[in-house]
Design a protein around this nucleic acid. Structure first.
Length: 551
RNA sequence: GGCCGGUUGGUGAAGUGGCUUAACACACAUGCCUUUCACGCAUGCAUUCACGGGUCCGAAUCCCGUACCGGUCACCA
C-alpha cells in the first residue's frame, strides 16, 4: 500500500490530473501591466461596507490597468450560507455600476475560467488534493474536535505555541495501512496539508500597503478539506482558484495578514508565484474609549443597505470611500472636477496602514450634500422619484402627482454657481419641503421666534396679504414692499439701522420675514422666501395665513 | 500567551532627517455679507506628533525600550 492507493481510496472518482486543469485555464493573454483582480465574497448575509470597499479597490485596480475584474462566490461554508445573499451582492455591485468582466449568475457563466462558484469546483479541488496526497504533502487526519480541544488546552497550560504542527500533529505519523484501514472503517477525517516549514525561520513578505514585513514560516498542518461536505477550506480554495484564474492582485482585509505564511507555502509547493497582496485596514468604530471592528449588528452604517435606504447617491458613497482609500484623492478630485474616480491613479502605498480608520458618516454627509446640490432640479426629481418607489410610497405619489411643481421647488437656489446645500440624502427631502404640499402640511409646530403675540402676527399677515403682496412682483419690488410693510408697522427696514437704534423700533424686517415664513411653513429655516411664496400661490398663502386670524 | 500590524488636533489624515512656526478636508466657534435660512468669504482651533531614552549640528521622521489599541492563533471566511 502506498500514497497512490490512499489517494484512490479517498478520491475514487477523480481521474484528471492537475495538468489537465492547468491546460484548461491557460495564462490570460493580457499586457504585462494588466491586473487581474477579483471580488470574492461569501454569501453569508448582507453586504458589509468593508467588503464593498474591497470590491471597489479590486475593480479600480483592474479597470485602470486594462485588466480583468471577476466575481467569485466563496460558498465553501455551507452551514453559514444564507439563501439569496449572493443575489444581494450582485445587486449592490450593479447599483454602484461595478461590473465584473467574469461571473456566474443564475447558471449563466461569463468567462473562461469558471465555474465561479466554489461549491461547483469540488472536482478541481479534489484533483489538487489527490495530487498532494500522492506526493506525500497531504494526509488524512482522524482527530476529533474533542481531541483537538484537549490538545489546545494542554498547549496553553504548557505555554506552548498553539496548533497542529510538528510533534503535535499526531495523524501525520500514521502509517499508510493505518490510514487506509481507518478510512475503510468509516472513521471521519479531514485532509491536512503536510507542512515542511520551520517556525524559527523567517522570510520577507512584501505587502503592497505596508511594505516589507518579516514573517515566520508556516509549520501548521492546516486543514485543506473538511470532513462532512468534503469542500476545501478558505486557504486551499484561495490557492487553487487564484492560481487557476491567474489572479495577479489579491485585495482583502487586514485580518488575512497572519495567514500569509500558509498561503505562501501553498504557492511554493506548486512551484508557482503567489499573487501580490494588498491588505487593507479594517474599518473600525469608536465605542467609548475602545476601537472595534465596525459590525453589522451594532452599526447600521456597516451595511450597504443603510445607504440605499437613506438614499445616499451611489456616487457620494464611492467618493467617501475613495477619500479613505487614498488620502490624496480629495485634493486630486478638487483639481480635476470633470473626472470620475476611475481616472484617479490609485496607489496602495498611499493607503493608510493605520489599523483604525474610523468611518466618518459626517464626511459622507458633506460629500453627499455637495453632490446633491450640484444636480439639476430635473435630475434630482428623477433620482428622488426612483428612490421613493422603493422606500417612500407617500412621497412617490406626490412626486408623480406634481412633477412640474416639485421641480420648481427643487430649483429654488439650485442650478447656480453656489447652490444651496441642504439635502444630505433623499430620505431627508420630504421632511424639509413638506410644507410645500398641502397633503403633508399636517403637523404644525410653528417655530415663531421673537414675535409670538397672536394679535401682532395677525396684523402683520393681514396687512401684508391685503395691502402689499402681489404674486407678479419681481424680487426687488417684492423686497421693497416688505420694507414698506416693516416701516408701516413700526419695524426697521434695515438691520443695521435697527441695531443702532434698538429702542426706536419694535423689531426689524428680519422679524417680519420670520413671521411670514413661519406662518407659511412652520419652519424658521427654509430656502428663499420670495420663491416659496411664488410657488405656493396666493390662494394657498391666504389659507395658511387665515389660521392666525382671531375671530 | 505567541506572532503580526498600528499609535500625528474633536474626526479622516499629509508628512520617510532641515523648504513644517505640522498641509488639506470634515466638524466646531466667531465675524463679514444678508429680509430670514442657507451659500460664499474671512478668522480661530495640535507650541507639538503615545511615553521614556539614544543617534545627529538638526527627529513627527532613524534606533532601542515601555505602554496602549487592533488583528490572528477553527473542519469561518
Amino acid at each position: 500500500m502506498n500514497n497512490i492507493d490512499l489517494s484512490n481510496l479517498i478520491f475514487p472518482d477523480i481521474n484528471k490530473s492537475i495538468e489537465y486543469y492547468k491546460d484548461m485555464y491557460p495564462s490570460r493573454n493580457l499586457d504585462e501591466s494588466a491586473k487581474v483582480t477579483r471580488f470574492a465574497p461569501s454569501p453569508t448575509g448582507f453586504v458589509h461596507l468593508g467588503n464593498f470597499e474591497t470590491a471597489l479597490i479590486n475593480y479600480i485596480l483592474a479597470k485602470t490597468s486594462n485588466g480583468i475584474f471577476y466575481l467569485r462566490c466563496e460558498d465553501t461554508d455551507q452551514s453559514r450560507k444564507v439563501d439569496g445573499s449572493f443575489d444581494k451582492i450582485v445587486d449592490v455591485l450593479n447599483k454602484y455600476n461595478i461590473k465584473p468582466d467574469e461571473y456566474e449568475f443564475n447558471n449563466n457563466i461569463v468567462g473562461n475560467y469558471g465555474p465561479y462558484i466554489q461549491s461547483k469546483r469540488r472536482e478541481i479541488y479534489h484533483t489538487f488534493i489527490k495530487y498532494l496526497i500522492q506526493i506525500g504533502k497531504a494526509y488524512p487526519c482522524f482527530c476529533t474536535k474533542e481531541q483537538l480541544n484537549n490538545k489546545r488546552k494542554k498547549q496553553e497550560q504548557n505555554k506552548e505555541r498553539i496548533g497542529y504542527y510538528g510533534r503535535h500533529a499526531n495523524c501525520r505519523n500514521l502509517s499508510i495501512d493505518e490510514q487506509i484501514s481507518n478510512i475503510k472503517n468509516g472513521i471521519p477525517y479531514v485532509i491536512r496539508f503536510k507542512s515542511s516549514g520551520d517556525n524559527n525561520k523567517r522570510f520577507d513578505f512584501n505587502d503592497l500597503v505596508r511594505g516589507i514585513i518579516s514573517l515566520p514560516e508556516n509549520d501548521q498542518d492546516f486543514v485543506i478539506m473538511k470532513s462532512n461536505d468534503r469542500l476545501p477550506t478558505y486557504h486551499f480554495a484561495h490557492f487553487v482558484d487564484d492560481y487557476l484564474m491567474h489572479t495577479t492582485h489579491v485585495v482583502r482585509g487586514e485580518e488575512w495578514l497572519s495567514s500569509v505564511p500558509i498561503h505562501i507555502e501553498l504557492f511554493q509547493t506548486f512551484n508557482t508565484k503567489h499573487p501580490k497582496y494588498i491588505h487593507i485596514p479594517l474599518l473600525l468604530k469608536k465605542e467609548g474609549n475602545n476601537l472595534r471592528k465596525i459590525s453589522k449588528r451594532k452599526d447600521p452604517e456597516a451595511s450597504m443597505t443603510f445607504y440605499e435606504e437613506k438614499g445616499y447617491p451611489t456616487q457620494a458613497v464611492i467618493e467617501s470611500l475613495m477619500t479613505i482609500i487614498n488620502s490624496n484623492y480629495e485634493t486630486w478630485h478638487d483639481n480635476n472636477k470633470d473626472k470620475i474616480y476611475l481616472d484617479f491613479i490609485f496607489s496602495p502605498k498611499k493607503m493608510s496602514a493605520t489599523g483604525g480608520a474610523l468611518y466618518d458618516i459626517e464626511k459622507l454627509n458633506n460629500i453627499s450634500k455637495n453632490y446633491i446640490s450640484k444636480l439639476s432640479a430635473k435630475e434630482l426629481y428623477n433620482r428622488v422619484l426612483n428612490w421613493s418607489k422603493k422606500y417612500d410610497k407617500e412621497l412617490e405619489l406626490l412626486l408623480k402627482k406634481y412633477p412640474e411643481y416639485t421641480i420648481k421647488i427643487f430649483n429654488i437656489e439650485r442650478e447656480q454657481k453656489n447652490p444651496r446645500k441642504d439635502f444630505i440624502c433623499f430620505s431627508d427631502i420630504k421632511n424639509q419641503i413638506c410644507y410645500m404640499y398641502d397633503e403633508l402640511f399636517k403637523e404644525k409646530n410653528y417655530e415663531f421666534d421673537k414675535i409670538t403675540d397672536h394679535k401682532e402676527i395677525e396684523k402683520i399677515l393681514k396687512t401684508y396679504i391685503d395691502k402689499y403682496y402681489d404674486i407678479n412682483d419681481d424680487k426687488d419690488t417684492w423686497f421693497n414692499k416688505l420694507k414698506l410693510l416693516s416701516e408701516e408697522l413700526g419695524y426697521a427696514s434695515n438691520i443695521k439701522e435697527y441695531k443702532l437704534n434698538l429702542d426706536k423700533y419694535k423689531g426689524s424686517i428680519a422679524d417680519i420675514s420670520t413671521v411670514i415664513r413661519v406662518a407659511l411653513t412652520t419652519k424658521k429655516i427654509t430656502p428663499d422666501l420670495y420663491e416659496i411664496l411664488k410657488i405656493l400661490g396666493k390662494e394657498r398663502i391666504k389659507k395658511r395665513f387665515e389660521v392666525f386670524y382671531l375671530n
